[in-house]
């Protein structure tokens, strides 16, 4: 718990740096007033709007105002929605998190058994098939896989909805689309970890106790080979939260990725800033979660 609090405190400077980057990027992106007003608007109107929005202040003053507002959870009003940006972003968050975890779930249930199977039956036909499949899975672009899945399951078979969010059935295709690439990567990781660990002496010790092979592998070997997998899983989850943009677009999934891409297209900077900030916060939290899981899986890591 002490460790947890310490890590949370450590996250504060990270958030400051992120806020600075977010602000600077938007500052450099150009004068928003030119976008907000028609091109032929009189110079006085432009100046008036700048003053109203505090855009005539120097950089550091603007930044301090930004941070001050940020601490109150305010990113300013969205041009397109005419509301505070943060609630709009937060409203999209559950959809994104739901999809990210569903994708990780798909990846886990595929990769663990396949990874173990191909390691324990190394060089067998099954291993060749799984390893080959993993390369294919990693190589398939999400937009293509998503469209193919829609074509097969929604158009031809009519079994699953084409797009949108609502029931668990809506979740299946996007989760598979996102999960496949991750599953491929983790299958390969588990396979190589397992191959290494199966030659460790403690595996021989486990066998020398008269343990059944099933327990040797699923208890003694798997627990050890999952340690590095947790990192990859956490990193993948973070990147899914921030960047499932393609998949969200293909399936019209009302998540953060979709919102972010729309906001960038319309130069709705309040939304962009709020989204990036929320994503950064979630990534930090995922990393913290990974650290705690590490501790749980590997007692050699001392969290002090």
């Amino acid at each position: 718990m002490k460790y947890f609090i310490k890590r949370l405190i450590q996250a504060v400077p990270v958030l400051f740096i992120i806020s600075f980057i977010i602000f600077s990027l938007v500052y450099m992106a150009g004068d928003p007033v030119l976008l907000m007003l028609p091109e032929d608007a009189p110079q006085e109107d432009k100046q008036a709007l700048r003053e109203a929005l505090n855009l005539d202040e120097p950089f550091h003053v603007q930044y301090m105002t930004f941070v001050g507002n940020l601490m109150q959870g305010q990113f300013g009003k969205s041009f397109t929605y005419g509301q505070e940006a943060l609630p709009i972003v937060l409203e999209r968050l559950p959809a994104t998190i739901e999809l990210a975890f569903a994708a990780i779930f798909v990846a886990t249930i595929i990769s663990i058994p396949f990874g173990i199977w191909s390691a324990t039956k190394k060089d067998s036909l099954g291993d060749v098939f799984i390893s080959g499949g993993a390369v294919l899975g990693k190589a398939m672009p999400n937009f293509w896989l998503g469209i193919m899945l829609i074509l097969l399951f929604s158009v031809y078979l009519g079994a699953l909805p084409v797009s949108g969010r609502g029931t668990i059935f809506h979740l299946i295709l996007p989760a598979i689309t996102l999960g496949t690439g991750i599953a491929a990567q983790i299958t390969r990781l588990i396979r190589s970890n397992m191959l290494d660990i199966l030659h460790q002496e403690y595996i021989r010790t486990a066998r020398s106790k008269g343990l059944k092979e099933f327990l040797v592998i699923y208890k003694h070997a798997l627990r050890n080979s999952l340690i590095p997998v947790v990192t990859i899983m956490a990193l993948q989850t973070s990147s899914l939260i921030g960047g499932a943009i393609i998949t969200e677009t293909v399936f019209s999934w009302p998540g953060l990725g979709q919102l972010l891409i729309q906001a960038i297209n319309t130069r709705d900077m309040a939304i962009v800033q709020a989204s990036v900030f929320v994503v950064a916060l979630l990534v930090i939290m995922m990393n913290l979660l990974a650290d705690v899981m590490y501790r749980f899986l590997d007692p050699r890591i001392n969290l002090k």
Partner: peptide
């Protein structure tokens, strides 16, 4: 090496 690092 002979004892499993993740179990007591």
């Amino acid at each position: 090496a002979a004892l499993n690092p993740v179990f007591t």
